[in-house]
């Protein structure tokens, strides 16, 4: 594999999520040996309550100093002192579009996002980032196991599947973790209400999926085995999640969109529901 995953961004929102993300990345670091970690906080306001402003003025410090200090304290609590590779960046971009421009142009291999902060609405930043940024977004839930031993990459052989496989391969090699591809074959029964015996159709769908898998394998050598399962009468995200839990997976890598590439939405329903519903497995959303 040409290059490793080196540069990580961590989006801090000053909530308790920050500590969790730091703990997680710290553990992962022992496995991955990242080169650089940038902790980014987007300072969205310029106006502070008068009392706070005065208190800051009295000490001759800026908000920037205070926040850097606070975040550094947390970093030191996790990583210990002397962290030359950890930077605190307090960004003051005027709009989220500009912030995304900054992040995308910085060339991060991954950015860590908390699923939820403890004040209302902080999840909105994550939801915008995952939709608009080109950097892969790793969502870390509260109950995440902080190690990567088994990676699951659900694919549907659409545009995003190739980058998903590429990134998962990188991850699995760097972390020496197992990697399994998963393809859920969905039989939409509502289209065939009068067909009792679906065996033939299932066989045909499976044959087609296997053909597409072979094409993918031709393009990317080292493509690992792909498990094919039939979807049940539920949303595919649920099928994937249950499978992941059953297999003891600790990272799911998925494309932002699937084959139903409807431009009206910037994120596919499978990725969206995986991020929203899952409680214990980190989800890495590949954006390009």
């Amino acid at each position: 594999m040409e290059n490793k995953l080196d540069r990580i961004a961590l989006l801090a929102d000053l909530s308790s999520m920050d500590e969790l993300l730091l703990k997680y990345i710290k553990k992962l670091d022992t496995q991955f040996e990242f080169k650089q970690l940038d902790i980014i906080h987007w300072l969205e306001v310029e106006d502070l309550p008068a009392g706070v402003r005065e208190a800051l003025a009295a000490e001759g410090r800026s908000l920037n100093d205070v926040l850097t200090e606070e975040l550094m304290e947390q970093v030191e609590a996790q990583f210990g002192p002397n962290n030359a590779n950890v930077n605190i960046l307090i960004r003051t971009e005027k709009s989220i579009t500009d912030l995304i421009k900054f992040i995308d142009s910085s060339g991060y291999d991954l950015m860590l996002l908390g699923k939820k902060g403890y004040y209302e609405g902080s999840g909105i930043l994550s939801s915008k980032l995952v939709r608009l940024s080109k950097t892969p977004c790793l969502f870390v839930p509260e109950m995440a196991r902080p190690s990567v031993a088994a990676i699951l990459a659900p694919i549907d052989f659409s545009k995003f599947s190739e980058p998903v496989v590429k990134l998962s391969l990188k991850l699995s090699q760097q972390a020496e973790a197992s990697l399994e591809l998963l393809h859920v074959i969905k039989l939409s029964m509502q289209f065939f209400p009068y067909i009792k015996d679906t065996k033939d159709i299932k066989q045909e769908l499976k044959r087609k999926a296997e053909e597409r898998y072979r094409q993918l394998k031709k393009k990317l050598d080292k493509t690992p085995e792909c498990t094919m399962i039939f979807g049940k009468d539920e949303h595919i995200s649920k099928t994937i999640y249950d499978y992941a839990i059953g297999e003891g997976v600790d990272l799911i890598v998925i494309g932002r969109k699937g084959s139903h590439n409807d431009s009206d939405f910037l994120i596919g329903s499978v990725a969206e529901r995986l991020i929203a519903n899952d409680k214990s497995i980190p989800v890495l959303v590949v954006n390009q």
Partner: peptide, 12 residues
């Protein structure tokens, strides 16, 4: 924005 501001004030 309000929630964010009060959070920020809190930290400071």
């Amino acid at each position: 924005r309000k929630d964010y501001e009060s959070k920020l004030a809190d930290v400071v």
